[in-house]
Write a protein that binds this DNA or RNA. Structure first.
Lengths: 215, 215
DNA sequence: GTCTATAAATAGATAGAC
DNA sequence: GTCTATCTATTTATAGAC
């Protein structure tokens, strides 16, 4: 019994070659993009033979799609949970912001890869992953709609709110290295910009825009 | 005299091979990134022999840097003009937003390339171009500072405002193809999102955040 | 300035042994 | 599941003629 359990524990604690490949690939794709990524480098970083990439995945492209799928499935799940909660519309919007931030933070590769996919028009998104993306946007749309029906939000294009949330958040989380260079160049305030400050600001801005108050 | 003039006019009206290469390369780099870009394809799109790339520019990398340099020099110039104007702080912030939007619109390749550079930590930015980037951010910092000194703005980290401006604007201008796919997938409000709506929203949000009013 | 031909290196992918 | 060796295609870059 103890033996069986320790085997199971070991299987969970020790990363499999597949998991190590996924982690190394995520970092490589984030740093260099799909075209710039190199399968040899991915294998080396994962301390795994290159041929294993083609054993576990069909191709470099399939490996990349796998990473995209996990990313967007995770945000979609978080956001769905937000919508399903009992909170009032304004709090759901705040939770939506927090959900995006949390998902992005848990995956440092997420924001840069998302940026690149946007730049590429979602060229690598398969149907299933695209469905996750649209689900996220539609969910925010329904939250905004619900707020409007209840009389707490003014009529607002949800895509505007979406851009106001996703834009600054992704920019913040994707720009770590860039911000370091700006800080070195003497730009004031860059170093002081914390995750919590950004999230709070985005939350406030989104809710304020929705509530209007004749602004 | 007439001959001389017509020659000069011709030289201005007819794109040189160098100009055609720059235009084709900008589109290629925007669509596929630096690593994904292909010099053969650039040459073909420019209707120019591939060897001309190496005649006019030193390498693929040098060609890319040339495009980066022009992009950021243009925004830096626009933004400097905004700061030099006689407008009051809030209007300078609005003009800053408009300047970014105008520069981005005039160069469809600009937003996607900027996104990719952020994702890559500015790996391709040479010292001169990085100076342009920092100049833009610092300029906004001074406008915010000026507003605070004059008592019209609350004390605010300028980087927060910067992220709130650049994030949504770049996202909007870079996401044209992606938005089309979302519209096809039935996401409401995507098609209705106009450039002017986004710019006005970003302006309002930035100024409101700066003015505070105890929010 | 423009073109052809080609060098030289890189990188995705697979066969086949263990 | 893992590894070695290798094939093949792609692609940046240049030499040299016109």
């Amino acid at each position: 019994m103890l033996t069986n359990q320790s085997v199971k524990l070991t299987n969970r604690l020790v990363e499999t070659s597949r998991e190590r490949l996924l982690a190394a690939a995520a970092a490589e794709f984030a740093a260099r993009g799909f075209a710039g990524a190199n399968v040899d480098r991915i294998a080396r970083a994962a301390r795994v033979n290159k041929a294993m990439i083609y054993y576990h995945f069909k191709s470099k492209a399939a490996l990349y799609r796998e990473i995209l799928r996990e990313m967007f499935a995770a945000v979609a799940a978080r956001v769905a949970a937000v919508e399903a909660s009992e909170a009032e519309p304004a709090d759901k919007v705040r939770a939506f912001v927090e959900a995006i931030a949390t998902a992005a933070e848990a995956r440092p590769h997420f924001p840069p890869i998302w940026f690149r996919e946007i730049a590429e028009g979602g060229a690598h998104l398969d149907a299933g992953t695209l469905a996750h993306v649209t689900a996220v946007v539609k969910t925010l749309g329904r939250i905004v709609q619900e707020g409007h029906s209840r009389g707490c939000f003014e009529r607002t294009n949800p895509m505007l709110i979406h851009a106001g949330i996703i834009g600054p958040l992704l920019l913040y989380f994707a720009s770590g290295p860039m911000r370091k260079r700006l800080a070195s160049a003497g730009v004031p305030g860059v170093a002081a910009l914390s995750r919590d400050t950004v999230v709070a600001h985005v939350q406030r801005v989104a809710v304020t825009a929705l509530q209007g108050h004749g602004v």
